[in-house]
């Protein structure tokens, strides 16, 4: 629906927005606006957080979060690119309390360090594990 597209352009003026399917959009934002975009989306009605995840693009790391609206339909995936050798990005725990669990899993499997997360440690793999399995250069 184009009314969601217009609304998204208002909420995130610095983003490039592409359409994925009927009312699902992908917004690409610069790296330093990560926390700001999350806060603005939550105030505009996108209160349900679906996931915080990462994709390993070989010369950089793409971190994204997916959120949905409560009163109406609509889903937006917000993504940004960060440095692969030292992946650090602010945490979203102050915006959504439920982001804590997604960030722990992303740290465990991809190695992305979220600054500000109260308790960032491994969850699915044993604590003595070395390496991050979902990276493309992981050998076992």
């Amino acid at each position: 629906m184009s009314e969601q597209l217009n609304k998204l352009k208002e909420i995130l003026p610095y983003a490039e927005i592409y359409k994925i399917y009927k009312n699902k959009y992908y917004a690409k934002i610069p790296k330093d606006k990560w926390h700001d975009a999350a806060r603005r989306l939550k105030e505009a009605g996108y209160v349900l957080l679906s996931a915080v995840t990462a994709v390993d693009r070989l010369n950089s790391m793409e971190v994204m979060f997916i959120c949905r609206r409560l009163e109406a339909n609509g889903l937006v995936i917000v993504g940004t690119l960060i440095d692969r050798n030292d992946p650090r990005i602010p945490s979203l725990v102050s915006v959504w309390e439920g982001a804590h669990f997604h960030e722990r899993e992303t740290f465990d499997l991809m190695g992305v360090y979220f600054e500000g997360n109260p308790d960032l440690r491994r969850i699915l793999l044993p604590p003595h594990w070395v390496g991050h399995p979902l990276r493309k250069d992981y050998k076992w």
Binding site: Y21, S50, V55, I66, I77
Partner: peptide
């Protein structure tokens, strides 16, 4: 090439897949 997010109403909640 593209991104898709498909989710269904599972018996426990939102079971979603993001396929790149």
């Amino acid at each position: 090439p593209g991104i898709g997010y498909g989710w269904v109403e599972d018996s426990r909640g939102e079971c979603g897949y993001m396929v790149v």
